[in-house]
Design a protein around this nucleic acid. Structure first.
Lengths: 319, 319
DNA sequence: TTGAAAGCGATACCAA
DNA sequence: TTGGTATCGCTTTCAA
């Protein structure tokens, strides 16, 4: 008991006792068993479950980096869950991770299976939904409004005078942020007297090469496309390479717009038209909200992290 | 007690009892507390601590994805630790994570602080050192010999007739895989009658833009460089963009070689000379070794995952 | 300032 | 087939 007090620096013991205890700690190579602490029920664990769709997508790798760096700085640990973009995987992971009494959960996306939602409500721990901003979250939410970001991009492309527009992205079995962007995008195009003549959703990862061959598919199947909007910058980059390889000039022959403003955009010969999203900051903000809640500080439930259009030079200038 | 047996499906109870127990489970929304199981000391936890230097480097994001997907498929969870390339961070993280009684640890790199090494030995749990193959590991190791991969690249560039060669990478305060590659590379160049005229180690992340401005620094400070070897493909891509932007022709004016064979190489206008490393497979292999050990299957202690030179078209053809 | 006792949830062991 | 009892390491409570 006295040893326990010394180790927690709780006070109420003499210097001599402390010295003796510490000597024994060294001699025995004692490491505390935090499981027992949590188990005793008084303290909460320092685990935070973090679900991420996949790490092949640089966007999510950055978000996770932001989360874990911040959590780590405050002595908390991320327990990772790669959900592969499926609610079923997420549900299974939630069930498993809850059994470990995490201090809280950070989940990518605002959609969860009904049973997952039940478990989350009953768990009685903080939950931060990230990425796709949820204005009426389970508990807390941080991210951006993807519909709006797609809408803004669509409006910008309309202002550049494009009429016949294509989209290249990937499809997943669940509603997600990318589809919200596409919805917003289509709304803007249609409302602006343009037409999304083709939406190509590949069953593949949202990476460079799918952007490349997706563009080939899109252009070979549909005539008269003036501009292509991609799910993210990696795909846009692949598309740009395809167009260049086929001798098309960007933007005079075809416009190319990405999303996410990934690091690769910083070294491209042309500035890629894109949408800047502060991925690292988003992750950090999520971790901050979690940590604040865990230490009973007041936290706003919803935080919009914002986005910013990058006009770039891969689409025509606005009229 | 009976409920415990039913929940574990251990047998030794009647169907009626099972039904009654399950009814209560549903009614109460019962979730097991796995902490108690582990705490009781009979079972081991399903946590595996995974230390990764940083996720901004696509290479490590892929390795982590490989690890977590495989672990997840066998109902184990990754507890992440981003060590920012420092042994001190690693040591602190090891101390913390060990207190949670993980089933095992997967660590990036073969170098650890003395105290970390002590803790690892005393922990009595499986440890897999990955990335930089350790032929006499603490416990198990999977990865590649980075010295050799650098050596092979050096020898290849020599066979292409280059003499004056530059290097652009990043520096960290610890010995690591990238420096082993550089060592092997220099050995090959010097043994082949060439010269590494300049090694530029930036204090930055090993990403696109540092490759871009690093190339500028390298070329403006040193005359007559015929070929540049980069720490990874992202930096090489940045360098390639710089050279192209300055009107240099690759490979006739200057050769460019990367390392890692990242996805972006698949859409580049030229095939980047690089070194293929199966990152995802490496992560999976690490997880497999861990899982095998945890289920007491026999496992070889060291596994070389191999690499393969990609000749590409960004350096001259061999003579 | 110190320590004895109880209890957290699950399970091994043994008794009914 | 069922359930009582002890146990894991730590912390809270209370007594010395």
């Amino acid at each position: 008991m006295t040893a326990s007090r010394v180790l927690r620096g709780e006070g109420g013991y003499s210097e001599m006792t402390k010295t003796k205890v510490m000597a024994q700690v060294d001699a025995l190579g004692y490491l505390p068993n935090r499981l027992a602490t949590v188990f005793a029920g008084d303290k909460t664990s320092t685990f935070v479950g973090v679900s991420i769709p996949d790490l092949g997508n640089e966007v999510f790798a950055q978000v996770l980096e932001g989360i874990d760096r911040k959590l780590g700085a405050f002595d908390h640990q991320s327990v990772l869950g790669l959900t592969q973009h499926t609610l079923e995987e997420e549900e299974n992971w939630i069930r498993t991770v809850l059994a470990w009494q995490p201090a809280g959960l950070i989940l990518t996306g605002r959609y969860h299976s009904p049973r997952a939602t039940d478990m989350l409500r009953n768990a009685g721990i903080p939950v931060v939904e990230i990425w796709d901003l949820n204005s009426s979250p389970l508990d807390m939410s941080v991210g951006i409004n993807h519909f709006d970001s797609g809408f803004d991009m669509g409006r910008y492309l309309m202002s550049c005078g494009y009429k016949r527009i294509g989209y290249v992205g990937t499809s997943h079995d669940t509603a997600n942020a990318a589809s919200a962007r596409l919805d917003g995008f289509c709304r803007a195009i249609e409302g602006g007297d343009g037409e999304v003549v083709k939406q190509l959703c590949l069953h593949d990862t949202a990476s460079y090469y799918p952007g490349f061959y997706g563009t080939e598919q899109l252009l070979s199947g549909t005539q008269g496309i003036e501009c292509i909007f991609y799910q993210n910058d990696a795909m846009a980059f692949g598309g740009l390479q395809f167009c260049t390889a086929r001798g098309m000039n960007v933007p005079s022959d075809i416009g190319v717009a990405g999303w996410g403003d990934l690091p690769i955009a910083s070294v491209m010969p042309q500035r890629l038209t894109s949408m800047h999203v502060p991925h690292l900051k988003l992750g950090q903000a999520a971790a901050e909200m979690m940590l604040a809640r865990l230490s009973d500080e007041p936290v706003p439930n919803v935080r919009d992290i914002g986005f910013r259009l990058i006009p770039g030079t891969t689409v025509r200038r606005p009229d």
